[in-house]
Amino acid sequence: MNKPASPGLHPNNPHKGRYNIPALCKALPALSAKVKRNPKGEQTIDFTDSESVVLLNKALLMHHYGIEFWDLPKGFLCPPIPGRADYVHRLSEFVDNKETKVRVLDIGTGASLIYPIIGATEYQWQFVTSDIDPISVKSSKAIASLNPKLKGRIDCRLQDSAKHIFKGIIQPGEQYHLTMCNPPFHKSLQEAEQGTLRKAKNLAANKRKRGNTDKTKDVKSGLNFGGQKAELWCPGGEEAFVKSMADESKLFASQVKWFSTLISKKENVAKLKKRLKQLEASDIKVVDMGQGQKLSRFVAWRFN
């Protein structure tokens, strides 16, 4: 049975096709030292090298979004920007284009501030961000305050309770057009470490297939596969997290127009839809996304 065709990147997503390495090196000259030629003679970087991946991300943010400062604390998740951008662009279709001052809540922002950077620069959205990790919040605040394009657009908040998602973050009287989230995927630290190692081995295998026989660096500890506990795992994993999110969303139905979350495991889509129907959500939408062979999706819902 053939896999379903990827829907491709959103028309507004600027990250289609191969990376424009010369333009990225112009934006961030430090990237030049990391550029290599693949067996086809095309310019690329070593995606198993954490420093190269961080520099690539920084160059992408500078070139496409006008970001002047971006950095990550050691060991924190370095996200792939094209896929992250697609979530923002597809979520923009849930907002009436006549709306002004669109307000968005990003749950579990992490240290990179990726979604607010893209949403604030591409659509001029206002963001509130939340994270349970103080280091992530500190990093997000630094990025938000040190970039002129982001000043006054992003309010970074610490979630001080592991039991809550919206409680303690959404304040009385606040209204949001959208919420978004990239939930923790794994159920335990051991499962997260196994996933990281598997991803590293796949990258190394792909590298050898392309004819690169260089010894692979220790990518297990690399920033491109980094991530702290709150970024990678929680008790019950993605299924438990999104169920809690659905349950709490009902409490804030009058303050949010559309709730949404990415879903990594396809089987969790049906489980979340079932729970949302039990909670009497008035509208539930599943939006497919794709980049090359990789398929992903998010679920959006609202209450009337």
Rank of each mutant, 00 (worst) to 15 (best):
P22N: 10
G8F: 13
L232W: 02
D106F: 07
V242M: 02
D214H: 13
L91G: 05
Q124T: 14
P14S: 04
A33C: 07
F225D: 08
S145W: 01
R153C: 12
V299S: 09
S264D: 05
P7Q: 07
R275T: 02
D46I: 14
T109K: 07
T109S: 12
L272P: 05
L203V: 11
P11H: 04
K138L: 11
R198I: 00
K149Y: 10
N304L: 13
F259Y: 04
A30Q: 15
F252K: 00
S112F: 08
S136H: 09
T121N: 06
K215Y: 00
L56Y: 03
Y123S: 03
K3D: 15
N12P: 00
D86R: 12
H89L: 12
I135G: 03
G173P: 03
L272E: 04
K141T: 15
E122G: 00
R84E: 08
C25Q: 12
A33S: 14
V53M: 14
V256E: 01
I135M: 06
Q255R: 08
D288V: 02
M180Q: 09
Q124S: 15
M62R: 13
A192G: 14
S50K: 10
L55S: 10
R153T: 15
Y87H: 09
S32Q: 15
L146K: 15
Q159I: 04
N268L: 02
P235D: 15
I143Y: 00
W301I: 03
A23Q: 14
C78K: 11
